[in-house]
Nucleic acid binder design. Structure first.
Length: 494
DNA sequence: ATAGGGTTAG
């Protein structure tokens, strides 16, 4: 009964049955506890889960590994990472599933860096079990998120050595991992060898090309997919449309958006619309993009307005920018970055009165910018830098190197552009300076950043790639930038 | 009875 409710749309009823069971003097066993927990996660009933935890301990089920693992997953799904870890630590016997739930917990709860370590912890013995296919899959997701190619490659080797090579879900994840680490060739190599590619495989590859700015190839893969008779789904179109927008393929994007509705009978969701708005905004069809948002059947969210605001910035469209801010305020979703963007629109238009007025408003509202962070991986070590970082152990050398690089770049014609209301050292500049400092000349630099790269840092990286003859790959929040010989593969800034 | 594939505009 509890099981039936847990799987249904009314999992809380499972709790009532569970409660009645207790009142009737029956002791729930591990199985009923597991099911009732699953229902709580779905409902977000954290306190109910905690009550079950208490009962589990009282009834002496703490030696039940399956139940404790279920409890871990319950805490993990409720966002209580620390409690999940506590249960894990208190377990006397941990099987591979318990370890996997731990990794899954880290990945789901933004502790991706902790997830990376688990693979080696399991392998170094003492854990009592070896990573299995699920461990590999989860760790690969973590590698993809953090752009840690080194470990991703080791997991790939492990997969080959342990006879998992034919697992479709692992291959699909490998394609995504290599794509997200900027290794498109490797991704394609894996993709090519998959015997029975399904919609997920194709979507992973399309997305790989898309996020690396190779929209045409993304479309080619999509055509090939259709020739092979695999039906695309909503996610395929999200990937495809984002590819069109990153590559500025307006006509292609429009055709695809049309065909997904007419040919494939799919209803566009907010992501699809978002890509179309981005695409139109990028090529300067700002008013059209606005009309798209207004005509949407679903309610516009803050992100889609922000996409349009970004386009207003690029094309210096003041009046529409102000209108967009109004929409964001109406949604009570305006953030520091939005005001900065509007500020930049005023600044580049030379509208100083508005600049002063907006600065005043921002001060009154107590708006601060949130610092972002960049990471660079060297020999398996992950080095993290924040804006104006002071915490990295080699920070003094980094600033010295950064100064030297800036002097070198100035000779080459680099002019620092002020993009926010104060001049600061963005985290990606620090990460790049550290990379130049800590690696031999000519080594490729791979940086991951949590926000979007600004035009100044973009210019900086572009120049650096030429002057220092270094290939630079920066993965920002939305896409990849491959810098080589003073150029970038993207057309975000022009 | 417990873990697990691709996507998500700025």
């Amino acid at each position: 009964m509890i099981r039936a409710y847990a799987m249904s749309v009314k999992p809380e009823r499972g709790f009532y049955v569970y409660r009645d069971m207790l009142r009737a003097g029956l002791r729930p066993n591990g199985v009923s506890n597991s099911f009732v927990l699953k229902g709580f996660v779905k409902m977000g009933l954290v306190l109910c889960g905690v009550q079950v935890h208490g009962r589990v301990l009282r009834d002496g089920f703490c030696g039940d590994g399956v139940l404790m693992t279920g409890l871990m997953d319950f805490y993990s799904g409720s966002g209580e990472c620390r409690d999940a870890c506590k249960v894990f630590d208190e377990m006397c016997v941990r099987d591979v599933v318990a370890w996997n739930v731990l990794v899954s917990c880290y990945v789901r709860n933004r502790r991706t860096r902790d997830a990376l370590g688990v693979f080696d912890r399991m392998r170094s013995g003492g854990s009592g079990c070896d990573p299995d296919d699920v461990t590999c899959l989860l760790v690969l997701q973590a590698c993809a998120k953090l752009c840690v190619l080194d470990l991703g490659e080791r997991v790939h080797e492990y997969i080959k050595d342990h006879g998992y090579s034919h697992y479709l879900n692992l291959n699909n994840t490998l394609v995504a991992m290599y794509s997200k680490c900027g290794q498109l060739d490797k991704a394609y190599e894996v993709f090519k060898e998959i015997p029975n590619k399904d919609v997920v495989s194709w979507t992973a590859m399309i997305s790989g090309f898309a996020s690396n700015g190779r929209g045409r190839e993304a479309i080619d893969v999509f055509r090939e997919m259709q020739r092979m008779g695999v039906l695309p789904d909503e996610q395929t179109f999200t990937a495809l449309l984002s590819g069109c927008s990153h590559a500025g393929l307006l006509d292609e994007g429009r055709l695809i958006f049309d065909s997904m509705q007419k040919e494939f009978n799919l209803v566009p969701n907010i992501h699809h619309y978002g890509c179309v708005v981005d695409l139109m905004g990028r090529v300067g069809l700002i008013e059209d993009a606005y009309d798209v948002i207004i005509s949407m059947k679903c309610k516009p969210d803050a992100t889609i307005w922000r996409t349009l605001l970004g386009a207003c910035k690029v094309h210096g469209h003041i009046t529409l920018g102000e209108r967009v801010i109004e929409h964001l305020i109406e949604l009570k979703a305006q953030e520091a970055g939005d005001y900065i963007l509007l500020l930049n629109i005023y600044t580049s238009a030379g509208n100083w009165e508005k600049v002063i007025e907006l600065r005043k408003i921002m001060k009154e509202k107590g708006i601060h910018t949130t610092p972002s962070a960049s990471t660079i991986e060297l020999k398996g070590e992950i080095n993290e830098f924040k804006v104006d970082d002071t915490t990295h152990p080699r920070i003094k050398e980094v600033y010295e190197m950064l100064n030297e690089i800036e002097n070198q770049l100035k000779i080459g014609g680099y002019i620092a552009e002020i993009t926010s209301d104060r001049l600061s050292y963005h985290s990606e500049k620090l990460a790049l300076a550290f990379g130049v400092l800590a690696t031999p000349p000519g080594t490729k630099l791979r940086v991951a950043k949590d926000l979007r790269i600004c035009i100044d840092c973009h210019n900086f990286a572009k120049m650096l790639s030429g002057v220092y003859n270094r290939e630079v790959i920066i993965r920002d929040r939305t896409r990849f930038h491959h810098f080589r010989e003073g150029r970038c593969s993207c057309n975000d800034f022009w």
